[in-house]
Amino acid sequence: MNNLTKADIVRSTLIVLLLVGIAMLLVQVTATLMLIAGAILVAAVIRAFSDPLQHRGVPETLSVLLALIIIIALLSGFGYLFGHSLSTQFDNLGSRLTDAYNMARQWLASQPFGRAILSSTPDIQSYVGQALTVAFGAIGVITNLVLVIVGGIYLALDPGLYARGTSKLFPKKHSGRVLDALRESGAVLRRYLAAQLITMTAVGSLVYIGMLIVDIPSAGALGLISALTNFIPLIGPFIGAVPGILIAFADDPHKIIWAALVYLVAQQIEGNVLTPIVQRHAVAIPPAVLIFALSAMGTLFGTIGIVLAAPITVVIYTLVADLWSRETLGHEVDTLENAGIDDDSETASE
C-alpha cells in the first residue's frame, strides 16, 4: 500500500512538472500560437462561405475554392467602390488626429485637473507604436499575414484531418468525444463570426450616417474604424470612439457632445436590438468571462491577444462546456442547441 502511494505521488509530481514545462514552452512560442489562432480564424471565415455550398452538393475542395473566389470578389468590389474615397479620408484622418491629439493635450494642460491626468496617462502615439512593433516586428507584418492566410486556407480545405490528428493526442476511448467537441467548437465559432460581422457592419454604418448628419470630417473612415474595433468586445467600442471624439474636438469643441451621442446611439442599438437577435444563432459568452479573457490574453500575448481574445474564448468556452461540464461532470449543456445549430448536419458536413 505504501509503495502504491509513493507511485501515485511520483506520477502526480511528474504530471505537474509536465504541465509546468508545457506552460513555460507555450510562453516561449506565443507569437506562433497567435499565428495559429489567426489561421483558425481565417479558416472559420472561409468555411462559413463554403459550408452552404457543400449543403447544396458541391464537393468540399471545390466549395472552399469557390468560397475563396467569393471572398476575394467581395473585398475587391468593396475596394473598387469605396477604396479611393476611404484612402483619401484615412490620409486626412491621420493628419487631423495628430493635430487633434496635440490640441487635446494642450487643453488638458490648461485645466486644473488636466496636469494630473496627463502625468498619469501614457503617450498614446508611442504606446501604439510599441504595440505594433511587438506584434509584428519579429517576423514582419507581410510575412505574418501570408502565414495566417495560407495556413487558414490549408485548414479550411480539410479541417477534419487536423481535428482527427488532435483527437489522437487523447486516449483512444475519448478520441471520438474530443473529435465531436472540436466539430462543435468550429460550428459555434463560425456562427459567432457571422454574428460579429452583422453587428460590426451595423455599427459602422450607423456611425458613418451619424457623423455625416452632425458634419464630422472623414465620416467614412470613422465608421470603418468603429466597425473594425467593434470586433473586440466590451473595450472595442470605446477604442473606436476615440478618433471620432478627437476629430470632433479639433473641428469644433461643441461637436464633442454630438459625436459622443452618435457613438452612444450606435452602441445602444447594437447592444439592445441587434445583439439579442443575432445571439439566438450564436453562443453568448458571459460578460465577466470576456473581461477576464481579455485581461489574460492581453497579458500573455499583448495587443494581438486582445484582438483574438473573443474568438479564442468562444472555442475554449465550447470545449470546456462539452468535454468537462457535459462529459466529465454530467451536466446537461448543449452549445450547439444554444447556438441554433443542428448537430447532425454539422457532423455530416465534416
Rank of each mutant, 00 (worst) to 15 (best):
I70M: 08
T30C: 05
A31G: 13
A44Y: 10
T61Q: 11
L75F: 08
I70L: 13
S50M: 04
L74R: 00
A43N: 06
L75K: 06
A44K: 04
T30N: 10
V29T: 11
I40F: 08
I40N: 03
G38Y: 04
V45W: 12
V27W: 08
H55N: 13
L68N: 05
A44H: 07
R47S: 11
I72Y: 15
M34A: 01
F49I: 14
R47W: 11
A67N: 06
A48W: 02
R56I: 00
I40W: 10
A43H: 02
V27P: 02
L62F: 15
A73I: 11
R47H: 02
L53C: 08
V58E: 11
L75C: 09
V27G: 06
V27T: 11
L65V: 12
P52L: 01
V29A: 12
I36L: 11
P59G: 02
R47K: 12
A43R: 01
V27R: 15
A39G: 10
A48T: 09
L62R: 14
L66I: 06
V64Y: 10
R47Y: 09
L65Q: 07
V42P: 00
E60I: 03
I71T: 03
L41F: 12
I72S: 09
R47I: 10
L41I: 04
A73K: 01
T61Y: 08
V42C: 04
V45H: 11
L53D: 04
D51M: 15
V64P: 00
L53A: 10
R56S: 13
R47T: 03
T32F: 15
L53W: 14
L68S: 07
F49M: 05
V45E: 11
A67D: 04
L65N: 08
I69A: 14
